[in-house]
């Protein structure tokens, strides 16, 4: 099948790649652009390990086609830190030990960032239900919620 030329913006950088029209955005990010921070946990939209934002909207990149990225703004976990300055969510995840194997972490961070963009002061249950689509098999979620609450507080203060 002939490949399609895609021009898009990923983490603020203009990028181009050639995509098989059947390739998912997740596969394009990982295989074409070497952005392997987004993970495949299921490939069916059920685990959130592949979470990215497209024009600010949180999506499962395993359910989006690579060609749909044309002309869009994509943000992934690799774009969260500014140089060596970690995003407050990233810092708080380290501080609160909100990760173990770390495989779910990129997706959860991207999803949490999207939540805080929409709602800077979420309640505990708003966080719980927002992140319900991001599975984590290791942590039991408690520290994840504390880390998000703490980061939200810091970002509101800042």
């Amino acid at each position: 099948m002939s490949r399609i030329h895609v021009t898009t913006t990923v983490n603020g950088d203009a990028v181009e790649f050639l995509a098989d029209p059947r390739d998912s955005l997740l596969d394009c990010l990982r295989d074409q652009l070497n952005l392997t921070g987004s993970k495949e946990g299921c490939g069916t939209g059920d685990c959130g390990a592949c979470s990215v934002t497209v024009d600010g909207t949180l999506v499962c990149s395993c359910l989006v086609l690579g060609v749909e990225a044309e002309g869009k703004r994509i943000e992934t976990v690799e774009g969260m830190a500014k140089g060596n300055d970690l995003h407050p969510l990233q810092r708080k995840f380290i501080e609160h030990a909100a990760l173990q194997c770390g495989f779910c972490t990129p997706g959860i961070l991207v999803a949490a960032k999207a939540l805080l963009a929409e709602n800077p002061d979420p309640s505990e249950s708003e966080i719980r239900f927002w992140l319900a689509g991001n599975l984590c098999r290791c942590t039991g979620y408690d520290k994840i919620i504390h880390a998000v609450q703490d980061a939200a507080a810091e970002m509101r203060g800042a």
Binding site: L86, F93, I94, A97, L99, G102
Partner: peptide, 9 residues
């Protein structure tokens, strides 16, 4: 590995 986990590295 936490700093690597949170940055996708």
């Amino acid at each position: 590995s936490a700093p690597l986990h949170v940055t996708g590295q």
